[in-house]
Design a binder for these strands. Structure first.
Length: 480
RNA sequence: GGCCCCAUCGUCUAUCGGCUAGGAUAACAGGUUUUCAUCCUGUAGAGCGGGGUUCGAUUCCCCGUGGGGUCACCA
């Protein structure tokens, strides 16, 4: 790659503060981060707040927090500055208007005073005539008139003077050359009537002045890339390398991941009990494979091997089953101290704190998500509902009554309530009466917990405690 | 609809013209286990269709089909 030879790798992520970061954006951010790290370059965080109508209060802080929560960071950005700041677009207004004016002066852009109403009418007519809706270039060839209108107070925008019938080609690292005809490119607004730049002007200007070498962004930007290419050409600037990352499809395989089909914010996955490391790992192997197809890998291993050109060119399904598997792997790798710490926000207030540590070893390998804690421990405290039909599943009412009575009797006189004492008591009973082991144990499990699936019986009974167990055995007896 | 992108097991992928098409996950079956989970073993499961190019195409080209993206003074 000759183009890369003397270039310092600088990547960026440029979210707009209109809400929470999407998981897809976080995955793209990871790629930008990893690529910059791999080449000893810099990863820049830039805030694109040029739409004051959609801006959400506090979003800039939330964006930075969530990136940190995922264990990632940036080298230059709004909070830490950098050589090419400021990194918030609303603080760079002067640059954009200057650049837009420059293009007008060079006859590469023009003023437009068309009202929104007129633009809407034009588009409606085009849609009715089944032609692609585009600006009709009304102002493009009446600039002297337009300037007079502006002098007498008309609102105006600045539009790009798109060349006619020219091929616009750029290279995408993942797909190769992509060509559009300039006739399909609108005379894009560059500077809005409120003085703010549009996204298209702002990205190109900022990426240029911030010396961004590689633009890795979502595939949904491919169709606006020709506008950016035209802008680079108009300014006479060197183009960065593009790599458009495929979008994530909904788990059902239909359409771009959207709120309609479940939550999509990066935050929401943390809230659901996924570990950031597991999420990052999932992002790594979705649409990309380690040379040895290793699937559980560290950030460092990823950084070492990741190359945007190896990213799959097709949209990929956000497979929650695989995410669950990865998350389970990461939870199992945790030691109990770490697990307890990460579990904190997922432990119900009603759960006795002194029971947390002893219960962890019993549920550790059963946790797929941190949020499973509540479900897996529901029977350790409080009251349980014992399904009577399950008690009698493999035996008669008489036998179960006898089993419950004898067990209650034996356990109530137990001097030391330990797992081993409970176990030997119960095993002795089972052997003495020649009860079917599976039936008896399962019956006890149901009586003690109300559930068919639990951690090992004796440890579980131990933690539930003697009084509660005796009480539940009594209750069970009344049900059979 | 126009434009653009894409196409290997259900899903994510390997293959960079030689394939008995490999792996992971999910599914299913079995083993370990007092249940579940973990762990181990096994089974089933894929090159969208049609044309070329070639000694030979999953791999290259074209057409079709299907899927996706995008068409704002939003990013």
């Amino acid at each position: 790659m000759a183009a890369m030879k003397n270039t310092v790798v600088r990547t960026r992520m440029a979210p707009s503060p209109t809400g929470d970061i999407h998981v897809g954006s976080m995955a793209t951010l990871l790629k930008n981060y990893a690529f910059a790290k791999k080449h000893g370059g810099s990863f820049v965080l830039r805030i694109e707040d040029t739409d004051k109508e959609r801006e959400v209060e506090g979003a800039i802080q939330r964006i930075q927090d969530i990136i940190h929560d995922y264990g990632l960071d940036w080298d230059e950005g709004p909070d830490k500055g950098g050589e090419f700041g400021p990194y918030i677009q609303s603080e760079r207004m002067e640059i954009y208007s200057q650049m837009a004016k420059k293009l007008v002066d060079e006859d590469k852009a023009y003023y437009c005073t068309c009202s929104r109403e007129r633009l809407e009418e034009v588009r409606d007519a085009q849609r009715a005539a089944k032609v692609p809706p585009k600006y009709d270039k009304f102002c493009r060839n009446r600039q002297s008139e337009v300037k007079k209108e502006i002098e007498s107070g008309s609102e105006y925008v600045i539009r790009l003077k798109t060349p006619e019938s020219e091929d616009v080609t750029f290279t995408d690292l993942i797909r190769g050359n992509i060509t559009f005809n300039s006739d399909s490119v609108d005379d894009q607004v560059l500077l809005k009537s409120d003085g703010f730049p549009t996204y298209h002007l702002a990205v190109v200007v900022d990426d240029h002045f911030m010396h961004i070498s590689h633009i890795m962004r979502g595939e949904e930007w491919i169709s606006s890339t020709p506008k950016h290419v035209l802008l680079y050409q108009a300014f006479g600037w060197e183009m960065p390398v593009f790599a458009h990352i495929p979008v994530y499809l909904n788990p059902d395989g239909k359409g771009k991941m959207s709120k309609r089909k479940g939550t999509v914010s990066a935050q929401s996955f943390l809230d659901k009990g996924y570990l950031p490391e597991a999420l990052l790992n999932f992002f790594m192997i979705l649409g990309w494979a380690h040379p040895e197809e290793k699937e559980i890998l560290t950030l460092d291993e990823y950084i070492e091997h990741f190359d945007p050109k190896d990213v799959s060119s097709k949209s990929v399904v956000f497979d929650l089953k695989k995410l669950d598997w990865i998350n389970g792997m990461y939870i199992r790798k945790l030691n109990v101290t770490e697990l307890e710490k990460k579990l904190k926000p997922f432990i119900p207030e009603s759960f006795p704190s002194e029971l947390v540590t002893p219960v962890l070893p019993l549920i550790h390998e059963r946790l797929e998500k941190l949020s499973d804690f509540e479900e897996l421990t529901s029977f350790f405290v409080g009251s349980v509902v014992i399904p009577s039909d399950l008690l009698l599943k493999k035996s008669s009412s008489e036998e179960v009554t006898t089993q419950l009575a004898k067990t209650h009797e034996a356990l109530s006189t137990l001097p030391h309530w330990t797992p081993t004492a409970i176990e030997s008591t119960i095993r002795e009973l089972q052997e003495k009466h020649d009860w079917k082991r599976n039936q008896y144990f399962m019956m006890l499990r149901i009586a003690a917990t109300g559930k068919k699936a639990t951690p090992p019986l004796f440890e579980t009974m131990h933690l539930i405690g003697k009084p509660a167990i005796l009480e539940r055995l009594q209750t069970a007896k009344t049900l059979v």
